[in-house]
């Protein structure tokens, strides 16, 4: 099937190429490499992935030119070695030494998601880009100044021309380029994925942990962090961290009281790499996270129904450590070593 598609694409490309003059090839389509455990990724029609666009987005992602004083890039808080999180910090400092209020999120499999940020406030990957650039607690830059710098740069106008056919760099094109790179960061080669493909075997502890993960009376994690594929349904929920949440979460966006204290259910892929945990980085270890679900659930008004009647201390010490062992199988070492995602 894939081969057929490829042939078809090649044919179409061939025809298109014939019609154009040979000297202007235009950007080349980027072939997304989706591992077997993940679905096809939707890509918006007005921002198709191209080799040139992705390469440009990657360069921008790592370039401090986007910040006010040119000291901070997206990668300052989203580091590849930590599955594109901040590496151990609950909150990240911006260029002025100001502290944010939420834990930096990992960046992978973004193309499968609908809302971005812990509260889903950013509507799409493109639109999200200008948030951190302008935010006073992050890169704190004036977008007009950043665009001025890019337009006066020795390389960027040419790179934008190659990717988008124009040397004039606008906010829209800046957003599109970075979003293209972000969509290519796909993670689906963990031990768990390899086990499903018959390329790896799980230890006894890992296999037992998987059962706890799915058992409704035990972990029941799969209820929200759906097992397989993206390991989350990305719905907004309250998982009982506080009886009254200091951060209104999703309600900041929807203004609905019923959304107060709800946050986007995060993927549990690469979870061993992204400590600390939760929207405010309150837990340092996976053991603490598991213990939260075992004995620490707070009866918030909007606590998810599936967590309402959970028996306290239902997990044995063995089950807890098995569950953590299973969570470790979700680490994708190829994600953190893939040179395609590294600083160019």
């Amino acid at each position: 099937m894939r081969n057929k598609l490829f042939l078809l694409t090649a044919l179409v490309l061939g025809i298109v190429a014939c019609r154009h003059t040979a000297t202007e090839p235009g950007p080349r389509a980027y072939q997304l490499d989706i591992p077997s455990g993940l679905p096809e990724m939707p890509v918006p029609a007005d921002n198709p992935l191209t080799e040139e666009g992705v390469a440009l987005g990657r360069k921008l992602f790592y370039d401090p030119i986007l910040s006010g004083n040119q000291t901070m890039s997206c990668a300052s808080c989203h580091k590849q070695e930590f599955a594109f999180t901040d590496g151990g910090k609950a909150f990240s400092f911006g260029i002025d030494g100001k502290l944010g209020t939420r834990n930096a999120m990992p960046l992978f499999n973004l193309g499968y998601q609908r809302g971005f940020f812990w509260d889903g406030g950013a509507a799409d990957i493109e639109s999200q880009v200008v948030g951190p650039i302008q935010n006073p607690v992050e890169m704190h830059a004036d977008l007009a100044i950043v665009l001025g710098r890019l337009n006066a740069h020795s390389e960027y106008p040419t790179l934008f021309e190659k990717a988008f056919g124009t040397r004039t760099i606008s906010s829209v094109l800046l957003m599109k380029a970075i979003a293209q790179f972000e969509r290519t960061i796909v993670s689906g080669n963990s031990k768990w994925d390899k086990y499903l493909r018959g390329e790896a075997t799980l230890t006894d502890a890992e296999s037992r942990g998987r059962i706890v993960y799915e058992d409704e009376d035990k972990g029941d994690c799969t209820h929200c962090h759906s097992i397989g594929s993206t390991f989350s349904d990305f719905e907004y929920r309250n998982n009982g961290l506080d009886s009254v949440s200091a951060d209104a979460g999703r309600a900041l966006i929807t203004f609905l009281a019923t959304d107060s204290g709800k946050f986007k259910t995060p993927s549990l892929r690469n979870i061993a790499l992204t400590a600390p945990y939760m929207h405010d980085g309150r837990f340092q270890t996976l053991e603490e996270c598991v213990e939260h679900y075992n004995s620490g659930l707070q009866h918030a008004r909007n606590l998810d129904p599936s967590l309402r009647n959970k028996v306290k201390n239902r997990l044995s010490t063995q089950q807890k450590s098995d569950l953590v062992a299973f969570l470790h199988t979700l680490t994708d070492y190829e994600l953190i070593s893939n040179p395609k995602f590294a600083k160019p």
């Binding site: 007005d46 940020f117 509507a123 999200q128 977008l143 957003m175 966006i253």
Partner: peptide, 23 residues
């Protein structure tokens, strides 16, 4: 109100968009 990829008066360059949500 929920897309940042717009130009003209709605271009994010005018500093009239929120940092934490698209709007």
């Amino acid at each position: 109100n929920h897309s940042g990829t717009q130009s003209g008066a709605l271009d994010p360059v005018h500093g009239m968009i929120w940092n934490w949500n698209t709007g």
